[in-house]
């Protein structure tokens, strides 16, 4: 591991994205549009106020997961990964470089999504909006690192697209958006306690309603952070310099 190589990798990934303005536009706009659509659907009901915070967690998480896993898979398919791994680039440099680059995009994306939800869609946030943003960013970075992990396992684009429903959908179903987590059957409740998206949604709802103190939100952030670190480490370990 070497900070210069990590930063060079992050810079390279960002340059690649910069050459594709449409991707940047989609990354920044799509989650906000979906949140806006949801606000419109529930415009005459109190539903948006309860599920809105969860949506700030959900859409950036999914988008970042997909974008990251496909970008890194493309690196594998075009042979550039093989070239890099025959060079003195640490496996951690590659994974961390990607995490930094997409983490930066995640900050931009979450800021737009939070701003749009609060100021355009009128989502009421009783707690600190900065804390809300912090959780949203952590959650989008989590999507990035899980996407990196998925693409380390996947061998084809088809497999990556399958990893989406396999890794992401259960977290959505058990995350408390469809049914509050304390009303889930005991086994599912216990499982959902271990899933990172549950904690992201809990934290966002806590900030929105100001029901808990900052220490509680900080604890949830730590859990998400642990998942991020775990995914980066596991992704680095899974990557092989030699392939069959």
């Amino acid at each position: 591991m070497n900070p210069q190589r990590t930063l060079a990798t992050a810079g390279r990934v960002l340059s690649q994205v910069r050459h594709d303005p449409r991707t940047i536009a989609l990354l920044l706009v799509v989650p906000s549009l979906l949140i806006g659509l949801l606000a419109w659907i529930f415009s005459d009901t109190p539903v948006f106020a309860t599920i809105g915070p969860g949506m700030i967690a959900l859409f950036p998480f999914i988008v970042m997961f997909l974008v990251t896993s496909i970008t890194t898979l493309r690196e594998r398919r075009t042979g550039t990964l093989e070239r890099l791994l025959s060079m003195p680039l640490g496996k951690g440099d590659l994974i961390l470089g990607y995490t930094l680059a997409f983490g930066l995009l995640a900050v931009a994306q979450s800021s737009v999504a939070v701003g749009f939800a609060v100021w355009v869609c009128g989502l009421e946030i009783s707690g600190s909006i900065w804390l809300l943003l912090a959780v949203a960013v952590a959650d989008a970075v989590l999507g990035t690192t899980l996407g990196l992990l998925a693409s380390a396992f996947a061998r084809t684009e088809f497999q990556v697209v399958q990893f989406m429903p396999a890794l992401v959908f259960p977290q959505i179903l058990l995350g408390g958006i469809f049914l509050p987590r304390d009303q889930l059957p005991d086994v599912l409740r216990a499982i959902s306690d271990w899933l990172p998206l549950s904690h992201a949604i809990d934290a966002l709802q806590a900030v929105a309603t100001d029901a808990q103190d900052a220490a509680y939100v900080g604890g949830e952030l730590l859990i998400i952070g642990a998942w991020i670190v775990g995914a980066v480490v596991l992704g680095s370990v899974t990557l092989r310099r030699r392939t069959p």
Partner: peptide, 22 residues
């Protein structure tokens, strides 16, 4: 098959690989 990044310029490709090699 050329293992370079299609969405970078020639110079950006080489600058990145140069940084990796030190």
């Amino acid at each position: 098959d050329a293992s370079v990044y299609d969405d970078l310029t020639v110079r950006q490709n080489l600058q990145y690989f140069r940084a990796v090699l030190g």
